[in-house]
Nucleic acid binder design. Structure first.
Length: 288
DNA sequence: CACCATGTTCCTTG
DNA sequence: CCAAGGAACATGGT
């Protein structure tokens, strides 16, 4: 589920639901997701704490809680990894097989489910500090983007996945933004011309903003247990036949390019798939 | 059995 | 010190 848009939509969904709720009990069935926090510390700190806010930074969720007695504030950091979900269930609830952590909130049960357990829910907040700027904020300018690409010999696609460069782009939206800006994923980052940097900067913002809009305008199945919605959480092709295809190139290997009709290709970069149109996305560098 | 999967972190190499 | 590449983590779908 999780790149910046998916996390943003989830945060907007959960924030009002969690606001003011008190944690009565904590159950950790997979201590690995707390890393490096211990189960004992985690449980002891969260028990009787109250949710006061929820925000997003890159692909991370940032929960704010107030301690049981007093005004002290505590940060709890969440990450969905590749397969994580977070949602509330009405009690009494049957927890899914891959529940990593659950919390008793009185009338509701908070569930962090994660099939592959790559996700996290932790009191350790260090990861947040290593993140680059938010791509949808005014802090992230074309100049900052250009400067960050200037000295890198890595292919631009690989560079976009670097969370210290700009936070929140993942494998799907990296391919989508490069397609939209007509740039080959193989070009070394420092070879991008001024015009290409500007187009890519704009494409990243558009692609992310549009995905958020899609997410908030669709009915979603957060726990993935609704027959009617077919488990549809966010993207995932063919999950819903009634919805239009959300991606131009991602996952479209062998299908025709929506612009020129040539076949979409896949290439492996840094052990991950990149999808692109060989005709629309030129390998040529622009003017610098 | 093969290959694929929305991510991050750690280790090695240069 | 840094950049870059690869493995590890873990479970499932096709």
């Amino acid at each position: 589920m999780p790149e910046l848009p998916e996390v943003e939509v989830l945060v907007r969904h959960l924030r009002p639901l969690l606001y003011g709720k008190v944690i009565h009990a904590v159950h950790v069935s997979r201590p690995r997701v707390l890393r490096p926090t211990s189960v004992r510390t985690f449980t002891q700190k969260l028990k009787k704490a109250r949710f006061t806010n929820l925000s997003r930074r890159g692909k991370f969720l940032l929960f704010t809680l107030s301690q049981r007695k007093g005004v002290e504030t505590m940060g709890l950091v969440g990450h969905l990894g590749m397969t994580g979900r977070m949602y509330l269930l009405s009690k009494p609830a049957t927890l899914p097989k891959h529940t990593a952590v659950s919390m008793d909130l009185g009338d509701k049960q908070f569930v962090f489910e994660d099939t592959r357990y790559f996700g996290r829910l932790t009191l350790e907040t260090g990861a947040i500090e290593r993140l680059g700027p938010e791509p949808l904020s005014n802090e992230w300018t074309t100049d900052i983007f250009a400067e960050a690409l200037r000295n890198s010999t890595q292919p631009i696609k690989v560079k976009l996945l670097d969370q210290s460069l700009v936070a929140g782009i993942g494998n799907i939206y990296a391919s989508e933004a490069l397609f939209r800006s007509g740039i080959s994923p193989k070009i070394p980052a420092r070879r991008l011309g001024k015009g290409q940097v500007l187009q890519l900067w704009r494409a990243i913002r558009e692609v992310l903003a549009e995905a958020i809009d899609r997410g908030i305008s669709q009915e979603l199945d957060y726990p993935g247990d609704s027959k009617r919605l077919d488990g549809f959480f966010y993207f995932g092709r063919s999950a819903r036949e009634d919805l239009p295809e959300p991606f131009s190139v991602y996952g479209r290997l062998g299908e025709p390019c929506l612009i020129c009709g040539k076949v979409i290709r896949r290439l492996i970069q840094a052990s991950r798939s990149t999808f692109y149109c060989p005709h629309c996305q030129t390998a040529k560098s622009g003017r610098r």
